[in-house]
Design a protein around this nucleic acid. Structure first.
Lengths: 157, 157
DNA sequence: CTACAAGTTCAAGTGAACTTGAGGTCAAGT
DNA sequence: ACTTGACCTCAAGTTCACTTGAACTTGTAG
């Protein structure tokens, strides 16, 4: 049965990635990773899954949702093991998004010292708090999600 | 009409701040803002509440929880209206936090291009993906929360 | 004085990202 | 063969930051 064969059990993947086994099952359910199964139905992962998980963890730290990450990961080739170039292509998109996020933080930082610090801040006048994005999301759920935009509900009139 | 005419109703505060009235009530429940009441029990806010709300919104964009923000806001003087200097003192603390967050993003950015892009990333070896204790936290709830705190090394006096 | 928009409380729902628990199965060592 | 621990599924629970709805009260314009 060619044991060893570099297929990893879930606990091994959990140990190596630092992501809980329950989270790995959850990621699989959400289509972020995939696994093969033994005859008895247990998950076995190829070593390459570790890089995929690494990407998920990175992307989360940057502030994106699992859904967004899943969308990005779906761009990786289905049939074959992704190459360095495949990853590089993904990385480029995400580098741009990180830069955006950093730019926003810089705006916030400026606003904090110049705007709140000095006392001019009033939110209905200060542009810094209101970076011209689309109007507030509809539907339930948190609106000020870290990666989200400030809802601009017609604060001017 | 009456002497307290500079007090704002909740809908007015909502309109000016861009934060929903329900959220304002929620913030009050969590001790982030306060209000006075009319004889009939309706909320009336002093204009100064707008700056407080602005701070909450800013801080959330930076990625901190309401509880953390409440703790920070508790440092403002209770009895009097906070001065520019009071805000400036708070701003300093938070500027430092923003800088930390940006530094982390920079690390992630580097990791994305150098580490995932080139293929060396394996999570059990790469330090970039594991800034501290992330594999070891216990307890319920999401562990890799976006706004999750990086161990704060109180670099500034 | 009355109509009604705007306000109130309280309970329950929402969505994201998981975790926990129950109840059972699989695989590896002795 | 047996035992033990790792694994399975599925349902329900948890945290955060709110929103929504029901049922009721206030405040103000006409």
């Amino acid at each position: 049965m060619l044991p060893g064969m570099s297929m990893l059990a879930i606990s091994e993947v959990a140990r190596r990635s630092g992501v809980a086994a329950s989270a790995l099952r959850f990621y699989e359910e959400r289509g972020l990773i995939r696994s093969e199964r033994t005859g008895g139905g247990q998950r076995r992962y190829p070593r390459a899954v570790l890089r995929r998980i690494a990407f998920v963890v990175f992307a989360q730290r940057v502030g994106f949702t699992l859904e967004e990450i899943a969308t990005e990961l779906a761009k990786l080739p289905e049939g074959r093991v992704p190459t360095g170039r495949d990853w590089q292509r993904l990385s480029k998109t995400w580098t741009a998004r990180i830069d955006e996020r950093m730019a926003e933080l810089q705006r916030l930082r400026a606003g904090l010292t110049q705007c709140i610090g000095c006392g001019c801040l009033s939110l209905d006048r200060c542009q810094l708090s209101n970076p011209g994005d689309r109007a507030g999301r509809s539907g339930p759920g948190p609106r000020f999600w870290v990666g989200d935009r400030v809802p601009v509900t017609d604060a001017k009139r």
